[in-house]
């Protein structure tokens, strides 16, 4: 247990005068300020799968933006070469009307991503407001609001969508309405759960003793602390919306020709599966890839946000 003193070299009496504490030193903090989101970003970066998900999504988004703009063909040009296999001219081949599948895939990406993201944003707005009001006010308000949510989620979802798409004309807008009419209930439930756990935390009580209004509590305390869960839910809502859109389009309830979404393309591709399998393969492949990438990002975010890993 005892160490030898002479390893310390010469110890002069001068070194043994009392100099007292250096309190400033003791209260000093490391230079670097570590905010919560910086740490989340650090942990997210460690997750290779999630980072590659981000890359994949970025590439898909860039291609969706630029390919239809700069390609020599347009998504509706009929080029007179039907069901041609992928070649130098037409990287993904052509379809039965002689349209370039490569351009149509990226044009379809625009539509699919647009539908997915818009639906997710609408879910976000309605869900967050609904959930936080319901959770914060509690009591009767909560009962009524959550029963509405229960009823909405009890109605067979597909039935609502099909009725809606039949009543309204097929197109982009009805598709988005169809996706969001019941889509937000999931977000509302999650936000309400978060709010219920946050609203009794001491910092919320402290704000209330300072005289904070409910609106102040929602904006300053509840949403910033629920943001993690909201973000994760949203990244997982987008692929669900994309998938649902594809699924509905596949059933023939999607956007109208000649507009393409991945779903309608896959649906059309089914017909020519024997002669031109690439017409099904490419849109199907990109649906899967996008959904996979969003899920990877969502899972990565959830892990990065998990407070249990936080030290």
């Amino acid at each position: 247990m005892e160490k030898r003193h002479d390893t310390y070299g010469e110890l002069t009496p001068e070194m043994f005068r009392v100099v007292g504490p250096r309190l400033a030193e003791s209260d000093q903090m490391p230079k670097k300020t570590v905010s919560f989101w910086k740490e989340v970003w650090y942990r997210f970066r460690q997750n290779k799968l999630a980072v590659s998900g981000v890359f994949i999504l970025a590439i898909i988004a860039l291609l969706a933006i630029f390919v239809p703009e700069f390609s020599q063909y347009s998504y509706r040009d009929q080029l007179g070469v039907y069901n041609e296999a992928p070649s130098k001219e037409h990287w993904f081949g052509t379809d039965d009307l002689g349209r370039d599948v490569f351009v149509r895939v990226w044009y379809g990406a625009r539509i699919s991503l647009f539908i997915g993201i818009t639906a997710a944003i609408i879910d976000l707005i309605i869900g967050v407001l609904w959930g936080s009001i319901s959770g914060l006010f509690g009591g009767r308000v909560d009962d009524i609001m959550m029963r509405i949510v229960d009823i909405l989620s009890a109605i067979p979802y597909l039935l609502v969508v099909i009725i809606l798409l039949v009543v309204m004309e097929q197109g982009l807008l009805p598709m988005i309405i169809a996706l969001s009419i019941t889509g937000w209930v999931n977000m509302a439930r999650i936000v309400r759960g978060e709010v219920l756990s946050i609203k009794n935390r001491e910092f919320v009580l402290a704000a209330r003793t300072l005289g904070a209004s409910n609106w102040h509590l929602i904006v300053r305390h509840i949403i910033p602390n629920a943001l993690g869960a909201i973000l994760v839910t949203m990244t997982l809502t987008i692929p669900t919306a994309i998938f649902t859109e594809a699924f509905l389009s596949f059933l023939g309830l999607g956007v109208n020709q000649p507009i393409a979404s991945w779903g309608t393309m896959a649906s059309e591709g089914m017909g020519g599966l024997r002669v031109a399998p690439w017409r099904l393969f490419f849109p199907a492949f990109f649906i899967s890839l996008t959904i996979f990438a969003f899920n990877a990002v969502g899972d990565g975010l959830r892990d990065a946000l998990d407070p249990k890993l936080r030290k």
């Binding site: 919560f36 001491e202 910092f203 009580l205 402290a206 300053r220 305390h221 910033p224």
Partner: peptide
């Protein structure tokens, strides 16, 4: 408040 961990909003 009692708990100096819980009584401060971690995002502020």
């Amino acid at each position: 408040f009692q708990d100096p961990y819980a009584s401060l909003n971690p995002r502020m």
